[in-house]
Design a protein around this nucleic acid. Structure first.
Lengths: 148, 148
DNA sequence: CTTGAACCTATAGCGACTGTAGAGAGTAGA
DNA sequence: TCTACTCTCTACAGTCGCTATAGGTTCAAG
Protein backbone atom coordinates (compact mmCIF):
# COMPACT_ATOMS: atom_id res chain seq x y z
CA UNK A 1 0.00 0.00 0.00
CA UNK A 2 2.64 2.50 0.93
CA UNK A 3 4.99 0.39 -1.12
CA UNK A 4 5.20 0.91 -4.83
CA UNK A 5 3.89 4.44 -5.10
CA UNK A 6 4.34 6.03 -8.49
CA UNK A 7 6.04 9.40 -8.74
CA UNK A 8 2.72 11.19 -9.16
CA UNK A 9 1.33 9.85 -5.89
CA UNK A 10 4.53 10.68 -4.06
CA UNK A 11 4.45 14.17 -5.49
CA UNK A 12 0.95 14.70 -4.13
CA UNK A 13 1.76 13.16 -0.76
CA UNK A 14 4.88 15.28 -0.29
CA UNK A 15 3.45 18.40 -1.89
CA UNK A 16 6.29 18.54 -4.35
CA UNK A 17 6.03 18.51 -8.07
CA UNK A 18 7.13 15.64 -10.23
CA UNK A 19 9.96 17.35 -12.07
CA UNK A 20 11.37 18.56 -8.80
CA UNK A 21 11.53 15.00 -7.49
CA UNK A 22 13.39 13.85 -10.58
CA UNK A 23 15.67 16.86 -10.23
CA UNK A 24 16.46 15.97 -6.61
CA UNK A 25 17.29 12.45 -7.70
CA UNK A 26 19.50 13.77 -10.46
CA UNK A 27 21.56 15.92 -8.12
CA UNK A 28 21.80 13.12 -5.58
CA UNK A 29 19.65 14.68 -2.89
CA UNK A 30 17.41 11.62 -2.77
CA UNK A 31 18.39 8.09 -3.72
CA UNK A 32 17.28 6.60 -7.02
CA UNK A 33 14.28 4.39 -6.26
CA UNK A 34 13.66 0.93 -7.69
CA UNK A 35 11.81 0.68 -10.98
CA UNK A 36 8.82 -1.23 -12.23
CA UNK A 37 9.17 -3.72 -15.08
CA UNK A 38 8.21 -0.85 -17.35
CA UNK A 39 10.96 1.41 -15.98
CA UNK A 40 8.73 3.59 -13.85
CA UNK A 41 9.98 4.81 -10.47
CA UNK A 42 8.46 3.09 -7.45
CA UNK A 43 8.78 4.76 -4.06
CA UNK A 44 8.05 3.72 -0.51
CA UNK A 45 6.90 5.76 2.45
CA UNK A 46 10.40 6.84 3.46
CA UNK A 47 10.73 8.72 0.19
CA UNK A 48 7.65 10.72 1.04
CA UNK A 49 9.09 11.60 4.45
CA UNK A 50 12.38 12.65 2.97
CA UNK A 51 10.75 14.79 0.32
CA UNK A 52 8.50 16.43 2.87
CA UNK A 53 11.58 17.20 4.94
CA UNK A 54 13.31 18.76 1.95
CA UNK A 55 10.28 20.77 0.87
CA UNK A 56 9.69 22.07 4.34
CA UNK A 57 13.31 23.11 4.74
CA UNK A 58 13.16 24.79 1.33
CA UNK A 59 10.05 26.69 2.31
CA UNK A 60 11.93 27.90 5.35
CA UNK A 61 14.71 29.20 3.14
CA UNK A 62 17.42 26.59 3.60
CA UNK A 63 19.54 26.22 0.45
CA UNK A 64 19.91 22.72 -0.95
CA UNK A 65 23.52 22.62 0.21
CA UNK A 66 22.45 23.06 3.83
CA UNK A 67 19.68 20.52 3.34
CA UNK A 68 22.20 18.07 2.00
CA UNK A 69 24.17 18.45 5.23
CA UNK A 70 21.08 18.10 7.38
CA UNK A 71 20.07 14.93 5.55
CA UNK A 72 23.42 13.36 6.20
CA UNK A 73 22.82 14.08 9.88
CA UNK A 74 19.39 12.52 9.76
CA UNK A 75 20.96 9.45 8.20
CA UNK A 76 23.39 9.11 11.12
CA UNK A 77 21.20 9.84 14.12
CA UNK A 78 23.50 8.22 16.66
CA UNK A 79 26.32 10.71 16.32
CA UNK A 80 26.89 13.87 18.25
CA UNK A 81 24.78 16.85 17.66
CA UNK A 82 27.81 19.06 17.08
CA UNK A 83 27.58 19.27 13.31
CA UNK A 84 23.86 19.92 13.45
CA UNK A 85 24.56 22.64 15.96
CA UNK A 86 27.07 24.26 13.64
CA UNK A 87 24.71 24.14 10.65
CA UNK A 88 21.81 25.43 12.69
CA UNK A 89 23.85 28.23 14.20
CA UNK A 90 25.07 29.35 10.82
CA UNK A 91 21.54 29.18 9.53
CA UNK A 92 20.30 31.12 12.53
CA UNK A 93 22.76 33.93 11.84
CA UNK A 94 21.77 34.01 8.19
CA UNK A 95 18.11 34.13 9.14
CA UNK A 96 18.67 36.92 11.65
CA UNK A 97 20.46 38.96 9.01
CA UNK A 98 17.63 38.45 6.56
CA UNK A 99 15.05 39.44 9.14
CA UNK A 100 16.94 42.64 9.92
CA UNK A 101 17.13 43.65 6.30
CA UNK A 102 13.56 42.69 5.55
CA UNK A 103 12.33 44.65 8.54
CA UNK A 104 14.07 47.80 7.36
CA UNK A 105 12.62 47.22 3.95
CA UNK A 106 9.13 46.75 5.32
CA UNK A 107 9.35 50.14 6.98
CA UNK A 108 10.20 51.79 3.71
CA UNK A 109 7.48 50.02 1.83
CA UNK A 110 4.93 50.90 4.48
CA UNK A 111 5.88 54.52 4.26
CA UNK A 112 5.65 54.45 0.49
CA UNK A 113 2.23 52.86 0.48
CA UNK A 114 1.01 55.13 3.26
CA UNK A 115 1.87 58.27 1.42
CA UNK A 116 0.64 57.15 -1.96
CA UNK A 117 -3.03 58.04 -1.74
CA UNK A 118 -4.43 58.36 -5.19
CA UNK A 119 -2.25 61.24 -6.30
CA UNK A 120 -0.59 61.50 -9.65
CA UNK A 121 2.61 59.65 -10.50
CA UNK A 122 4.46 62.93 -10.57
CA UNK A 123 3.94 63.20 -6.82
CA UNK A 124 4.18 59.49 -6.08
CA UNK A 125 6.05 58.82 -2.93
CA UNK A 126 6.90 55.28 -4.07
CA UNK A 127 8.70 56.52 -7.10
CA UNK A 128 10.30 59.38 -5.23
CA UNK A 129 11.74 57.06 -2.62
CA UNK A 130 12.94 54.60 -5.20
CA UNK A 131 14.59 57.39 -7.11
CA UNK A 132 16.54 58.75 -4.18
CA UNK A 133 18.41 56.42 -1.94
CA UNK A 134 19.10 59.13 0.59
CA UNK A 135 15.40 59.34 1.45
CA UNK A 136 15.59 55.91 2.93
CA UNK A 137 16.78 55.45 6.46
CA UNK A 138 18.05 51.93 6.61
CA UNK A 139 19.37 51.37 10.14
CA UNK A 140 21.68 48.93 8.45
CA UNK A 141 24.82 50.87 7.58
CA UNK A 142 26.15 49.17 4.48
CA UNK A 143 24.61 47.93 1.30
CA UNK A 144 21.46 45.99 2.14
CA UNK A 145 22.32 43.53 -0.62
CA UNK A 146 18.99 41.80 -0.76
CA UNK A 147 20.47 38.62 -2.13
CA UNK A 148 20.98 35.29 -0.38
CA UNK B 1 31.20 66.77 -17.78
CA UNK B 2 28.24 64.62 -16.92
CA UNK B 3 27.95 63.98 -20.61
CA UNK B 4 29.95 61.23 -22.19
CA UNK B 5 30.60 59.05 -19.16
CA UNK B 6 32.05 55.64 -19.90
CA UNK B 7 30.36 52.55 -18.55
CA UNK B 8 32.89 52.21 -15.75
CA UNK B 9 32.18 55.66 -14.37
CA UNK B 10 28.46 55.12 -14.61
CA UNK B 11 28.84 51.82 -12.80
CA UNK B 12 30.62 53.54 -9.91
CA UNK B 13 28.18 56.44 -9.84
CA UNK B 14 25.14 54.18 -9.77
CA UNK B 15 26.73 51.49 -7.59
CA UNK B 16 26.02 48.87 -10.16
CA UNK B 17 28.50 46.64 -11.81
CA UNK B 18 29.45 46.88 -15.45
CA UNK B 19 28.11 43.53 -16.62
CA UNK B 20 24.82 44.27 -14.95
CA UNK B 21 24.48 47.51 -16.89
CA UNK B 22 25.11 45.73 -20.17
CA UNK B 23 22.65 43.05 -19.11
CA UNK B 24 19.98 45.67 -18.40
CA UNK B 25 20.59 47.15 -21.82
CA UNK B 26 20.33 43.73 -23.41
CA UNK B 27 16.96 42.99 -21.84
CA UNK B 28 15.69 46.46 -22.72
CA UNK B 29 15.44 47.81 -19.19
CA UNK B 30 17.58 50.79 -20.10
CA UNK B 31 17.98 52.29 -23.57
CA UNK B 32 21.09 51.62 -25.60
CA UNK B 33 23.32 54.68 -25.21
CA UNK B 34 25.21 56.39 -28.00
CA UNK B 35 28.71 55.15 -28.79
CA UNK B 36 32.09 56.76 -29.15
CA UNK B 37 34.03 56.56 -32.42
CA UNK B 38 35.69 53.49 -30.96
CA UNK B 39 32.34 51.82 -30.20
CA UNK B 40 32.36 52.45 -26.48
CA UNK B 41 29.15 53.25 -24.68
CA UNK B 42 28.72 56.87 -23.65
CA UNK B 43 26.15 57.74 -21.02
CA UNK B 44 24.68 60.94 -19.68
CA UNK B 45 23.44 61.80 -16.21
CA UNK B 46 19.93 60.46 -16.81
CA UNK B 47 21.36 56.98 -17.24
CA UNK B 48 22.92 57.20 -13.79
CA UNK B 49 19.58 58.23 -12.30
CA UNK B 50 17.76 55.40 -13.97
CA UNK B 51 20.32 52.84 -12.90
CA UNK B 52 20.23 54.11 -9.33
CA UNK B 53 16.46 53.78 -9.41
CA UNK B 54 16.72 50.20 -10.65
CA UNK B 55 19.41 49.22 -8.16
CA UNK B 56 17.51 50.69 -5.27
CA UNK B 57 14.32 48.92 -6.27
CA UNK B 58 16.27 45.67 -6.62
CA UNK B 59 17.71 46.08 -3.15
CA UNK B 60 14.16 46.45 -1.92
CA UNK B 61 13.33 43.12 -3.49
CA UNK B 62 11.35 44.28 -6.51
CA UNK B 63 11.66 41.86 -9.44
CA UNK B 64 12.79 43.32 -12.74
CA UNK B 65 9.30 42.84 -14.16
CA UNK B 66 7.87 45.13 -11.48
CA UNK B 67 10.69 47.59 -12.03
CA UNK B 68 9.91 47.61 -15.72
CA UNK B 69 6.36 48.62 -14.84
CA UNK B 70 7.56 51.28 -12.43
CA UNK B 71 9.85 52.74 -15.05
CA UNK B 72 7.02 53.03 -17.51
CA UNK B 73 5.14 54.95 -14.83
CA UNK B 74 8.09 57.25 -14.28
CA UNK B 75 8.15 57.87 -18.00
CA UNK B 76 4.48 58.88 -17.98
CA UNK B 77 4.24 60.97 -14.83
CA UNK B 78 0.84 62.53 -15.53
CA UNK B 79 -1.18 59.39 -14.95
CA UNK B 80 -2.59 58.01 -11.71
CA UNK B 81 -0.56 56.67 -8.87
CA UNK B 82 -2.73 53.61 -8.54
CA UNK B 83 -0.49 51.20 -10.39
CA UNK B 84 2.59 52.17 -8.39
CA UNK B 85 0.62 51.69 -5.22
CA UNK B 86 -0.49 48.24 -6.31
CA UNK B 87 3.06 47.18 -7.07
CA UNK B 88 4.41 48.49 -3.79
CA UNK B 89 1.58 46.96 -1.79
CA UNK B 90 2.13 43.55 -3.36
CA UNK B 91 5.79 43.83 -2.51
CA UNK B 92 4.94 44.83 1.05
CA UNK B 93 2.74 41.77 1.50
CA UNK B 94 5.46 39.53 0.12
CA UNK B 95 7.98 41.00 2.53
CA UNK B 96 5.63 40.64 5.49
CA UNK B 97 5.04 36.99 4.68
CA UNK B 98 8.74 36.40 4.47
CA UNK B 99 9.34 38.07 7.80
CA UNK B 100 6.65 35.96 9.45
CA UNK B 101 8.07 32.75 8.12
CA UNK B 102 11.64 33.69 8.96
CA UNK B 103 10.65 34.69 12.48
CA UNK B 104 9.03 31.31 13.05
CA UNK B 105 12.14 29.66 11.70
CA UNK B 106 14.37 31.72 13.94
CA UNK B 107 12.42 30.52 16.96
CA UNK B 108 12.93 26.91 15.94
CA UNK B 109 16.61 27.43 15.24
CA UNK B 110 17.14 29.16 18.58
CA UNK B 111 15.42 26.36 20.41
CA UNK B 112 17.38 23.79 18.51
CA UNK B 113 20.71 25.42 19.22
CA UNK B 114 19.67 25.78 22.84
CA UNK B 115 18.68 22.15 23.23
CA UNK B 116 21.49 20.82 21.14
CA UNK B 117 24.13 20.71 23.82
CA UNK B 118 26.05 17.51 23.25
CA UNK B 119 22.94 15.46 22.69
CA UNK B 120 22.43 13.09 19.83
CA UNK B 121 21.06 13.91 16.40
CA UNK B 122 18.22 11.49 17.07
CA UNK B 123 16.77 14.04 19.49
CA UNK B 124 17.56 17.07 17.42
CA UNK B 125 14.78 19.58 17.54
CA UNK B 126 15.38 21.20 14.17
CA UNK B 127 15.33 17.93 12.35
CA UNK B 128 12.16 17.00 14.12
CA UNK B 129 10.57 20.27 13.13
CA UNK B 130 11.73 20.00 9.56
CA UNK B 131 10.40 16.47 9.36
CA UNK B 132 6.93 17.36 10.51
CA UNK B 133 5.22 20.32 8.99
CA UNK B 134 2.46 20.29 11.59
CA UNK B 135 4.92 21.24 14.33
CA UNK B 136 5.49 24.59 12.75
CA UNK B 137 3.02 27.41 13.06
CA UNK B 138 3.51 29.37 9.91
CA UNK B 139 0.46 31.58 9.55
CA UNK B 140 1.27 32.03 5.90
CA UNK B 141 0.22 29.12 3.75
CA UNK B 142 0.79 30.09 0.18
CA UNK B 143 3.40 31.19 -2.26
CA UNK B 144 5.18 34.55 -2.00
CA UNK B 145 3.88 35.54 -5.44
CA UNK B 146 5.99 38.63 -5.95
CA UNK B 147 9.70 38.53 -6.06
CA UNK B 148 12.63 36.92 -4.50
C1' DC C 1 55.38 54.46 -29.03
C1' DT C 2 54.56 51.43 -25.56
C1' DT C 3 52.21 49.86 -21.74
C1' DG C 4 48.30 48.78 -19.14
C1' DA C 5 43.75 49.76 -17.82
C1' DA C 6 39.30 49.96 -19.42
C1' DC C 7 36.32 48.61 -22.82
C1' DC C 8 34.03 45.39 -26.49
C1' DT C 9 31.24 40.89 -27.86
C1' DA C 10 29.86 36.39 -27.10
C1' DT C 11 29.12 32.68 -24.37
C1' DA C 12 28.71 29.68 -20.26
C1' DG C 13 27.53 29.09 -15.60
C1' DC C 14 24.99 29.64 -11.07
C1' DG C 15 20.75 27.84 -7.98
C1' DA C 16 16.56 25.74 -7.96
C1' DC C 17 13.68 24.71 -10.40
C1' DT C 18 9.79 24.57 -14.58
C1' DG C 19 8.26 23.43 -19.14
C1' DT C 20 8.48 20.98 -23.48
C1' DA C 21 8.67 17.17 -27.04
C1' DG C 22 8.15 12.77 -28.30
C1' DA C 23 8.02 8.33 -26.82
C1' DG C 24 6.55 4.24 -23.85
C1' DA C 25 3.66 2.18 -19.81
C1' DG C 26 -0.44 1.33 -17.36
C1' DT C 27 -5.57 1.22 -16.86
C1' DA C 28 -10.57 1.36 -17.56
C1' DG C 29 -14.40 0.78 -20.49
C1' DA C 30 -16.71 -1.24 -24.94
C1' DT D 1 -8.89 -7.57 -27.22
C1' DC D 2 -9.05 -3.04 -28.78
C1' DT D 3 -9.19 1.64 -27.90
C1' DA D 4 -8.78 5.70 -25.44
C1' DC D 5 -6.76 8.04 -22.06
C1' DT D 6 -3.75 9.22 -18.42
C1' DC D 7 0.62 8.75 -16.38
C1' DT D 8 5.44 8.34 -16.76
C1' DC D 9 9.89 8.16 -19.24
C1' DT D 10 14.31 10.76 -21.05
C1' DA D 11 16.54 14.67 -22.61
C1' DC D 12 16.97 19.15 -23.10
C1' DA D 13 15.67 24.25 -23.22
C1' DG D 14 14.08 28.09 -20.57
C1' DT D 15 13.41 30.94 -16.26
C1' DC D 16 15.50 34.99 -13.20
C1' DG D 17 19.10 38.05 -12.25
C1' DC D 18 22.98 38.22 -12.58
C1' DT D 19 28.46 36.86 -12.66
C1' DA D 20 32.56 35.13 -14.87
C1' DT D 21 35.42 34.00 -18.60
C1' DA D 22 37.89 34.29 -23.19
C1' DG D 23 39.77 36.75 -26.59
C1' DG D 24 39.88 40.77 -28.74
C1' DT D 25 39.91 46.42 -29.26
C1' DT D 26 40.36 51.23 -27.65
C1' DC D 27 42.01 54.79 -24.86
C1' DA D 28 45.02 57.63 -21.90
C1' DA D 29 49.35 58.25 -19.49
C1' DG D 30 54.26 58.23 -19.57
Amino acid sequence: MTDGMTIGRVAKAADCNIQTIRYYEQIGLIPAPRRSSGNQRLYDASAVRRLAFIRHARELGFPLSAIRDLISLVDHPAQSCEAADRIATAQLHAVEGRIRRLTALRGELERMVEECKGGRVADCRVIEVLSDHSLCETPDHGAPALAE
